[in-house]
């Protein structure tokens, strides 16, 4: 028996909006520690890892580890029917091939339940090694989204270079080139507006902008985004989910041949 009750149902709505266009079908894994997902996009260039810890749920019952295969587009369609202030409960009986989403309005005067068929998805879990990053960038998530959007109107790949001066996002295309430099700025009145660069050593990597733009769909989840870079390994773009967990996007770099 599985019953997860999330008072801040809008978090789950936002999570689905941020992954449904990147990944079609995925397994949600439920265990005593929490509700998680790990899935690659169809071209195996990007990977998303989601964790919602059990403590973040108002009620978390998971009698045994269970993996539920879902079509994320259909799941998003059902979650769109939940109000932003609704409490969302996810229920599944042992051995059942469906999952039920229950939406309760804050005043409990409206209760809806949507039942979705589960799928069999054979997805291998990948081991993600803990890496020492050459550069860690913490910046306002809206700013990062704006940079990715603006640069993708000029070119389709971005070179992200981190030096002690700051971080530079560069692109080039048929119509010309664009460079955006963000300097470390911690003299802001609100901490979430700061741009922090921890850079043990300079690094420069090239990525496809369309994936970064897809990752920025998670912007509504957090005011800040953490971008961790190391030479020759995937970048990690992480959005914290209100002291419940995180959503991490990994993107393989484009490498000089």
């Amino acid at each position: 028996m599985l019953e997860l009750r999330l008072v801040q149902g809008s978090l789950l709505k936002k999570v689905l909006e941020s992954i449904k266009d990147l990944v079609n079908d995925a397994n949600f894994d439920c265990s005593a520690t929490g509700f998680s997902l790990q899935a690659m996009d169809s071209s195996h260039v990007a990977l998303v890892a989601l964790l919602l810890r059990s403590e973040g749920f108002e009620h978390y019952r998971c009698d045994r580890n269970i993996s539920m295969g879902m079509n994320l587009g259909n799941m998003a369609k059902m979650l769109k029917c939940a109000g932003n202030d609704d409490i969302i409960t996810l229920k599944a009986d042992d051995g059942s091939d469906t999952v039920t989403f229950m939406f309760e309005s804050p005043t409990q005067d409206k209760i809806a339940d949507f039942e979705m068929r589960l799928m069999d998805i054979d997805s291998e879990h990948l081991g993600i090694p803990e890496a020492e990053y050459h550069a860690i960038l913490i910046m306002p998530s809206a700013e990062f989204a704006r940079i990715c959007k603006d640069l993708s109107s000029i070119g389709d790949t971005v070179v992200i270079s981190v030096t002690k001066e700051g971080v530079k996002f560069s692109t080039r295309g048929d119509i010309g080139t664009a460079n955006v430099v963000c300097r470390q700025n911690t003299t802001v009145d609100k901490p979430e507006e700061a741009t922090v660069i921890e850079m043990p050593e300079p690094v420069s990597l090239t990525f496809a902008l369309r994936y970064l733009n897809s990752f920025t769909k998670a912007t509504p989840l957090s005011n800040t985004v953490t971008i961790s870079l190391s030479s020759e390994i995937p970048v990690v773009v992480e959005y914290k989910i209100a002291e419940m967990g995180y959503i991490r996007f990994y993107l393989a770099p484009k490498i000089e041949e």
Binding site: L126, P234, A252, P253
Partner: peptide, 14 residues
């Protein structure tokens, strides 16, 4: 030219 690499060449099957 920049060749797009794949996640699976960095993360092995657990």
């Amino acid at each position: 030219v920049n060749q797009q690499s794949q996640i699976t060449s960095f993360f092995s099957k657990a």
